[in-house]
Amino acid sequence: MSERGDMVLVADVHLGRDDPDLEPFCAFLRARARDTAVMVLLGDVFSLWLGREKFTESHHRAVLDACRELRRAGVRVVFIEGNREFATARWRGDAFDEVDEARAEAPWAGRTWYLAHGDLLNREDRRGLLFRSLIRSRPVVGAFGLLPARAGLALAARIERSLRSRNLRHKTSIRRARFDRYAAWLAARGYDGGVIGHLHVELELELPCPGAAPRRLYVLPDWRTGRRVLRIPAQGEPRFESPGPTRPNPPAVIEVRERAGRAELTLERAVGAAPGTRVAVSSGHGPEVRRGLLVSCDPAARHAVVRLEPGPPIQAGDRLLGVDDA
Rank of each mutant, 00 (worst) to 15 (best):
E3I: 08
R4P: 14
R4N: 07
D6F: 06
L9V: 15
V13Q: 02
G16E: 12
D21L: 01
D21P: 00
L22Q: 07
P24I: 08
F25C: 12
L29H: 05
L29V: 11
R34A: 14
A37G: 11
V38Y: 13
V38K: 10
L42T: 01
G43L: 09
S47H: 14
W49L: 12
W49K: 05
L50Q: 10
L50V: 05
G51M: 02
R52C: 03
R52L: 14
E57S: 14
H59I: 07
A62E: 13
A62T: 09
A62C: 04
V63M: 04
D65A: 15
D65L: 12
D65K: 12
D65I: 10
A66R: 08
G74N: 08
V77N: 03
V77R: 00
I80C: 03
I80W: 04
E85G: 02
F86Y: 15
A87T: 04
A89F: 03
W91A: 00
G93D: 05
G93W: 03
D94G: 08
F96C: 13
D100R: 12
E101Y: 03
R103A: 14
A104Y: 00
A106C: 05
G110L: 04
R111K: 15
T112M: 00
H117A: 02
E124D: 10
E124H: 08
R126Y: 07
R132A: 13
P139H: 13
V140H: 05
V141L: 12
A143L: 15
A143I: 04
F144L: 13
G145S: 06
P148D: 11
P148S: 10
A151W: 11
L155Y: 04
A156E: 07
I159R: 08
I159V: 15
R161K: 15
S162M: 01
S162R: 06
L163W: 08
R164N: 08
S165R: 14
N167L: 01
L168Y: 04
K171N: 04
S173D: 04
F179Y: 12
F179K: 04
A184L: 12
A184W: 02
W185G: 00
W185A: 09
R189S: 10
R189I: 05
G190S: 13
G197T: 08
H200K: 00
H200G: 00
E206G: 03
R215H: 04
R216P: 01
Y218W: 00
Y218T: 03
P221Q: 05
P221Y: 02
D222V: 12
W223L: 11
L230F: 10
A234D: 15
E237N: 10
R239E: 14
G244L: 03
T246S: 11
N249M: 03
P251E: 07
E255Y: 01
R257N: 09
R257P: 03
A260P: 09
A260W: 09
A263D: 09
E264N: 03
L265T: 02
L265R: 08
L267W: 02
V271Y: 05
R278I: 10
A280R: 11
S282G: 14
G284M: 06
H285R: 15
E288V: 00
V289H: 11
G292S: 14
A304M: 01
V305M: 06
R307Y: 02
P310G: 09
P312R: 13
P313H: 10
R319F: 04
L321H: 09
